[in-house]
Design a protein around this nucleic acid. Structure first.
Lengths: 116, 116
DNA sequence: CTGTATCCTTTTAGATACTG
DNA sequence: CAGTATCTAAAAGGATACAG
């Protein structure tokens, strides 16, 4: 994956709390913003996300999703069928990140990218 | 982290270049967004940034600044006085990141943070 | 299908010392 | 003041195998 916003790798920095800090914590990780981007559109299942994201391993995807769930950004719904289905969606808190993701996307499109 | 863009070998819907990718590359690193945030306000010298950022080492700050310079986001101006002064500012390209940074900051303030 | 468990590599950041 | 040079550590992610 390309480099991304990451949390400090060494020790934590003594924080002079910048208004960006909160958001940066939420979006930490190389895949997090992209995961949320796909979830903005509509709820998606684990396998869908994995395919959409192209290249993420199930270990990492699972890890990020649990992190987002713990932060209250994403909710997880298990549909008890066989084979099992699990659907992820943004919570209302998660939807508050849309302005950030949209701004990022607009920049990308401005810079001449294809759409997702 | 140079990822390994996966060659979309054969399969149906492989590797989407997501519109977020461009921005995520620009903001890579634990300190990058915050550095740009402070530079949004006004040009700043190396030592000012270091103080503003509270906790960054000169090694990392220097490294990130050179990276941003290479990407055309930040410009570096040396003022030949003694002791030397070096001032950094956003380029016009760098200013395009403002909407993203502003969206992040708004989220932080909404979540109840102190200002920078 | 939706994950977990290992093991390993890469990427950054922190600590510290030193220079023009 | 504005960096550079080393060295170390830790986090993140990748590969792979396997389970419910």
């Amino acid at each position: 994956m390309t480099k991304t916003i990451r949390p400090s790798s060494g020790r934590a920095a003594p924080p002079p709390d910048c208004p960006l800090d909160h958001c940066l914590r939420l979006l930490a990780g190389a895949w997090t913003a992209k995961i949320l981007w796909y979830l903005c559109e509509e709820p998606r299942r684990f396998g869908d996300l994995r395919r959409d994201l192209g290249g993420i391993t199930s270990k990492v995807l699972s890890s990020r999703l649990r992190e987002l769930e713990a932060k209250g950004i994403v909710s997880r719904e298990v549909i008890p069928v066989s084979p099992p289905q699990v659907s992820y969606r943004l919570t209302s808190l998660g939807k508050e990140l849309r302005p950030v993701l949209d701004a990022m996307a607009r920049l990308g499109e401005k810079a001449g990218q294809s759409s997702c």
